[in-house]
Write a protein that binds this DNA or RNA. Structure first.
Length: 268
DNA sequence: ACACTAACCTGCAAGC
DNA sequence: TGCTTGCAGGTTAGTG
């Protein structure tokens, strides 16, 4: 479900509601996520104040007085903050209690993950590439990092070791905006086109964050309301519909076991 | 070092 | 009304 804009939206919501709050109780309903939640997490975070929130790639970081709580939403994860008396829902796996509120981590497919970290030197974080909205994702970055790559360009921009946060939706959308065919080999694309692609990735992600993310089936912000970027999608999920640019047919193909949506006429 | 696959899960919609 | 199939926002470990 969540790509960078959805994670950013979630993080911003948590920031508003839970900064400076004290964790008074931790409840693990089902520890079996992508990786099993370590039971010692309770001991490590209970009674701690949340100093701040941050994001690295698609990981949300709860920065505590001592250490960090790190969460990934996987494909279907979402976080809700509600009053303590609200009944628990199906797939609520991890609950953090505060004064009068509860934060609930809900994830039907359980591809998400939750860790406690003493410090940020963790292999899952260390292997991440640059942040797409920071200056480190500069105009020549993709060109420089693609010269020896024979994989397709879509796989390149979705590779979190290269650049984080670009998932299936926004990869399709940025390639459409740039007029690049997703099947093109990464090392066959010119510097100029990569400069344009980089700009479009930044633009698409920024727009999506402003819209509160993309709600397809079940993404919701911390307050339970949907994001509105789905109204702005040009190709994703629009197989056989008309291209907004040339009126041709949008095609769906499979690349690396993921659906790719593109316009064969506009993207060459 | 790189490229590609399988695997981890549940839920939903479409087709028969 | 089922049953089966395919697909869904991610990412790692393993293989060649």
């Amino acid at each position: 479900m969540p790509e960078l804009p959805e994670v950013e939206t979630t993080k911003n919501g948590l920031e508003k509601l839970l900064t400076k709050k004290i964790i008074t109780k931790v409840e693990i309903c089902n520890p079996n996520l992508r990786w099993k939640i370590d039971g010692s997490i309770k001991y490590n975070i209970n009674n701690q104040t949340i100093r701040s929130f941050s994001r690295r790639g698609k990981y949300i970081l709860f920065n505590l007085e001592r250490g960090h709580l790190m969460m990934h939403l996987g494909m279907s994860g979402k976080i809700n903050v509600v009053n303590s008396h609200e009944p628990i829902k199906k797939h609520d796996h991890f609950l953090l209690y505060f004064d009068d509120q509860v934060m609930r981590f809900n994830d039907p497919r359980r591809f998400g993950s939750i860790f406690y970290l003493d410090n940020l030197n963790h292999k899952l974080l260390n292997s991440l590439g640059v942040e797409p909205l920071e200056d480190s994702f500069h105009k020549n970055y993709l060109f420089e990092n693609s010269r020896n790559k024979t994989q397709n360009v879509k796989a390149l921009i979705m590779d979190s070791k290269v650049v984080v946060g670009v998932g299936n939706i926004y990869a399709c959308e940025s390639l459409f905006k740039t007029g690049i065919n997703p099947k093109t080999k990464a090392n066959k694309i010119s510097k100029q086109r990569y400069i344009a692609l980089t700009e479009n990735i930044k633009k698409v992600l920024t727009r999506a964050i402003k819209a509160g993310g993309t709600t397809l089936q079940d993404f919701a912000k911390v307050d339970g309301k949907p994001g509105y970027f789905s109204q702005e999608l040009s190709v994703y999920g629009r197989e056989n519909e008309h291209c907004l640019n040339c009126n041709g047919k949008i095609k769906r193909i499979l690349q690396n076991q993921r659906s790719t949506f593109y316009c064969p006429k506009c993207q060459n």
